[in-house]
Design a protein around this nucleic acid. Sequence first.
DNA 1: TCTTCTGATGAAAGCGCTTTCAGCAAACGT
DNA 2: ACGTTTGCTGAAAGCGCTTTCATCAGAAGA
Lengths: 338, 338
Amino acid sequence: MVSAVRVKLSDVARDAGVSAATVSRAIAQPELLSPETLARVRASAQRLGYLPDGAARALASGRSMTIGAIVPTLDSAIFARALQAMQATLAQSGYLLLVASHEASPAAETQAVRALLGRGVDGLMLVGAERAPDTTALLKASGLPVVLTWCGDGHFTAVTIDNALAGRLAAQHLIKLGHRRIGMIAGHLQFNDRQRARLAGARAALEEAGLSLPDSLVVEQALTLAGGRAGCAMLLDLDAPPTALIGGIDLFAIGCLEEAHARGIVVPEGLSVVGIDGLDMSAHVSPGLTTVHVPTGRIGNLAAQTLMAMVANRPVAKETVLPVELVVRRSSQPLNRT
Amino acid sequence: MVSAVRVKLSDVARDAGVSAATVSRAIAQPELLSPETLARVRASAQRLGYLPDGAARALASGRSMTIGAIVPTLDSAIFARALQAMQATLAQSGYLLLVASHEASPAAETQAVRALLGRGVDGLMLVGAERAPDTTALLKASGLPVVLTWCGDGHFTAVTIDNALAGRLAAQHLIKLGHRRIGMIAGHLQFNDRQRARLAGARAALEEAGLSLPDSLVVEQALTLAGGRAGCAMLLDLDAPPTALIGGIDLFAIGCLEEAHARGIVVPEGLSVVGIDGLDMSAHVSPGLTTVHVPTGRIGNLAAQTLMAMVANRPVAKETVLPVELVVRRSSQPLNRT
DNA sequence: TCTTCTGATGAAAGCGCTTTCAGCAAACGT
DNA sequence: ACGTTTGCTGAAAGCGCTTTCATCAGAAGA
């Protein structure tokens, strides 16, 4: 490792014949310098290949130009897209994204928050509103800008969607099509307020229509395609199987499509399926998946923007609720249209 | 923002009645302290809610406990999985992941490298071996541990797969099934050595079998499902369309499945399709996708481990080539079996 | 001509931690 | 009994930068 001695601020200062303060200003507040000085400093910095030391800057200025994000997992189309959007938005302003995942463990989330807080992030993005009290206490004590996503808690700033409405829209669509026995595959409800809300929304819609979503028609599964298939299998194996299924996430719904196909059940003739998320994939599977579209990318963009605004002490909306929208495709049709 | 004054090392030291050095040791090298002192310091730290300042630690110690990763995009099942694996592996050792993406732009990659270098990462993961000379120069000059993934360049340490072999396996499989006109949908080849190698491998296999893969049977597409569909459409619209298709990534192959389905072409009877990647999804689409499986998660794990080993000055293999493996499913079958 | 600004720059004091280097007591060796 | 080693702890010097605060020309005002 022939690590060349790092060029530091003082080297540039010496080279340019100015003080360290001037070089510092050339980087952070160029408008304070005379054009000539600025040009000279920049030339020196360029020639020496100067790269400011982030740790030192962070220590001296109290800002790290880094935003933290803690998600259940990166290995999910949803969170991956949201993080990509965040990262892209942040990068435009010179911020970097520090990520951690907790795999649906509140304790791991606390750990992650502690780690990111220690790393001096300027702001923190979290998913959902439900978490260990420790975590919340840590967050509040830090006084750090925090943005919750997907679900808010009324306390922290949030960029959300109405998950209950999403569940409701899915259910209402099926009800309107004449379905009466509707089943739902949800993610494990513990430590997942998004899924709980979607389920509650669907249930409320059914009850408002004089129907119901009994626990026997709800299965909890791991948030994977295989989970969706397994859930679908369980519901179809019921004595009186549902005529329509709601997937708490699109992946579940796609799993249902596969399972139905494997069983020789034609969708939508033999079974209607509706998802929630609006994955790209959902438009391409066959039959095309009817789903409640969620603006995942925008959640990421907005979370990033909100966080940066908070860092800059600009006012931000306490909670931004992004719209969800039913997208009807081929996977759902009126009951008994044979 | 009622940001409570941050508890600092000196506060803990005072509270515990020891020097700052002792508190510092309690955190980083507890074995140097007497059990009693250690316990006392820990109790104080705990009670005061002390959280070490990462920037200060990084500045003083020269280590940030942060690893950087730069990928084309986070919004891809492949990179998302690799990053999730990296993150999980790193977290176990107290490291955090700083991510950036470049969207297939060499200039953006240079930018990202600069940003991460400045942020004082202890190591850097990059995808592929091809990049702007600036970037390479920057990397070398920094002397930082760097691990390339998917493709190596013989210079930097790398955790790779044999992309050419992957392409070759896909092609050989189809050749063995009797296919003679084989088409391929590849990602844009510029700034994507993985795709170039896969294409080259497929082409080599065909030539070895006395066949060929003319440019007319190769289409370049954006790395999305829609790209796969579009590519498939182009190839099927040829006067003499291929009887089998290789997708440079599974997503392409899945797109082919959709496009074929939309055209009323039955896979595999009317068209054989093979992918490369081994997405979870590929096992679940119908027909199940024949694909060359790539151990994506292991690439991430190994990259993380390698990077940590390099940071610790432990010896590491210059290049680890992970195995790829053909997984035959239903989407491919002998030619003309009707 | 003599203040009073204004704009550009420098000196120097940290930011919160790590890490030599020393010091000191207790344990050891002979 | 007297050097030596060993184990634990403290003092203090930075790490590389930012940011007051002070300075000092030159421009502007009286």
